[in-house]
Simulated assay, not measured.
Amino acid sequence: MAQIATSMANAFSNESEMKAMDANRYATKKTIAQGMLDIALLTANASQLKYILQVGDQHQFYKLMLIMISLSIILQVLSGVLSLSLSLMRDCRMHKPEYYQSANVINHIRTGFAFFTATINLFISAFDTRLPLLIGGQVEEQK
């Protein structure tokens, strides 16, 4: 009888652990965190664009930086529009199997935009002359 009671108690504790790990709650938190990171990147790009426009042609890579920052902002906005359309599709039509293919295509395109945005921002960081050079373990200010 004691074994049955122990087994029942273990079953109830496992069930409560499964309820604690709700997949929808995890997905919601992940989406919110990703949105905050997207907003932070958009804010950083806006700040970099402001700096480049203030400095003007005096910046060594003015045209390149202007093009890359603008392209990054455009890709972020398009990615946001695709995310909105995907969430609207999920809320309105995802119960219908014929919309699965288009949702996957939109998701892949959005992932591609995110990859290219990250790559462009890597190059933006490389060409940013506001950052000091690190040579031989010592920081050397650019002139």
Results as ranks from 00 to 15, higher is better:
142 Q>P: 14
82 L>F: 10
108 H>A: 10
24 N>E: 10
114 A>S: 12
61 F>C: 00
14 N>M: 14
105 V>T: 09
134 L>C: 08
47 S>F: 11
63 K>V: 09
59 H>R: 07
135 I>S: 08
124 I>L: 00
19 K>L: 09
111 T>K: 14
28 T>C: 14
56 G>W: 01
85 S>N: 15
95 H>Q: 10
90 R>Y: 15
79 S>R: 05
136 G>T: 06
6 T>S: 13
71 L>F: 01
14 N>E: 08
67 I>F: 03
107 N>P: 02
101 Q>M: 11
114 A>H: 04
54 Q>W: 00
134 L>F: 00
119 T>V: 15
112 G>A: 04
7 S>A: 15
81 V>I: 10
8 M>R: 14
101 Q>T: 12
77 V>E: 08
102 S>N: 12
15 E>T: 06
58 Q>F: 04
75 L>G: 02
57 D>E: 07
85 S>H: 12
73 I>M: 04
6 T>P: 06
12 F>L: 13
137 G>I: 11
65 M>R: 07
117 T>N: 04
78 L>S: 01
62 Y>D: 02
1 M>A: 14
107 N>A: 09
48 Q>R: 00
139 V>D: 04
54 Q>Y: 05
53 L>I: 03
93 R>T: 11
139 V>L: 09
30 K>S: 13
33 A>D: 13
4 I>H: 10
13 S>I: 11
22 D>I: 06
58 Q>L: 12
18 M>G: 11
68 M>W: 01
120 I>F: 03
27 A>G: 02
31 T>S: 15
64 L>C: 05
46 A>L: 01
68 M>E: 09
104 N>V: 11
21 M>W: 13
60 Q>Y: 02
106 I>H: 15
88 L>E: 14
8 M>N: 08
47 S>Y: 06
106 I>C: 12
34 Q>M: 15
127 F>P: 03
31 T>E: 06
80 G>F: 03
52 I>Q: 00
2 A>W: 12
64 L>M: 08
16 S>K: 04
31 T>D: 13
31 T>G: 05
